[in-house]
Amino acid sequence: MLEGKVKWFNSEKGFGFIEVEGQDDVFVHFSAIQGEGFKTLEEGQAVSFEIVEGNRGPQAANVTKEA
C-alpha cells in the first residue's frame, strides 16, 4: 500500500488525483474508494491505496481514508 494526499477531487464528476511524494500524481475514480455511503475525498486528505494499470495508465485502487 502507498500513502498520499488528495490533490483535488471533483465529487460531481467522481474523480480526482492523489499526490505521492517522489512520484507522478495518481488518478482516482470514486468507485475505488472503500467504505459505505457517498464516496468522495477532500483536498489534502491523507489516503492509502494501491496502484493498478487502468485503460489510460496507472490509477488508484482500494483507496482508504486515513484517520
Rank of each mutant, 00 (worst) to 15 (best):
Ile18Leu: 10
Gln59Ile: 11
Leu41Glu: 01
Gly57Glu: 03
Gly4Leu: 01
Thr64Pro: 02
Leu2Tyr: 13
Gly37Ala: 08
Phe15Trp: 15
Glu19Trp: 14
Gly57Tyr: 05
Gly54Phe: 09
Ala61Ser: 11
His29Arg: 04
Ala46Pro: 12
Ser11Val: 13
Val28Ser: 02
Leu41Asp: 01
Ser11Met: 11
Gln23Met: 12
Asn55Cys: 05
Val63His: 00
Gln34Leu: 13
Glu3Ile: 15
Glu36Arg: 09
Asp24Lys: 12
Leu2Thr: 12
Glu36His: 10
Asn10Gly: 04
Gly16Ser: 00
Glu36Trp: 06
Arg56Ala: 12
Ala61His: 12
Phe17Gln: 03
Phe49Gln: 00
Gly54Gln: 08
Asn10Met: 07
Leu2Lys: 14
Gly16Lys: 00
Trp8Met: 05
Ser31Thr: 14
Lys13Ala: 09
Phe38Tyr: 13
Gln59Met: 11
Asp24Ser: 13
Phe15Ala: 03
His29Pro: 03
Val6Leu: 04
Glu19Ser: 14
Thr64Asn: 12
Ala60Gly: 05
Gln45Val: 09
Gly44Ala: 06
Lys39Leu: 11
Lys13Thr: 07
Gln34Gly: 10
Glu66Asp: 14
Ala61Val: 10
Phe17Asp: 00
Ile33Met: 05
Gly22Arg: 07
Lys13Glu: 04
Glu12His: 14
Gly37Tyr: 06
Arg56Asn: 09
Phe27Cys: 02
Gly16Met: 01
Val26Gln: 02
Gly4Thr: 01
Lys39Cys: 04
Lys5Gly: 03
Lys5Ser: 05
Phe49Ala: 02
Pro58Ser: 08
Ala46Phe: 11
Ile18Thr: 00
Ser48Glu: 08
Glu66Arg: 14
Ser11Gly: 13
Val47Ile: 08
Pro58Thr: 10
Gln23Val: 09
Gly37Pro: 07
Gln23Lys: 11
Asn62Pro: 02
Val6Asn: 01
Phe9Gln: 01
Glu12Gln: 14
Gly14Arg: 04
Ser48Ala: 12
Glu43Lys: 15
Gly57Cys: 04
Asp24Phe: 10
His29Gly: 03
Ala32His: 08
Lys7Glu: 02
Asp25Trp: 07
Asp24Tyr: 12
Glu53Arg: 11
Gly54Tyr: 10
Ile33Leu: 09
Glu19Tyr: 13
Asn55Pro: 15
Phe30Trp: 13
Val47His: 00
Asp25Lys: 05
Lys13Pro: 02
Thr64Gln: 15
Gly54Leu: 10
Phe30Cys: 04
Gly14Phe: 02
Ala46Asn: 13
Gly57Gln: 05
Phe17Pro: 00
Val6Lys: 00
Val28Met: 05
Ala60Tyr: 01
Val26Trp: 03
Val28Lys: 00
Gly16Gln: 00
Glu12Gly: 10
Phe38Trp: 13
Phe9Thr: 02
His29Lys: 03
Ala60Met: 01
Lys39Thr: 06
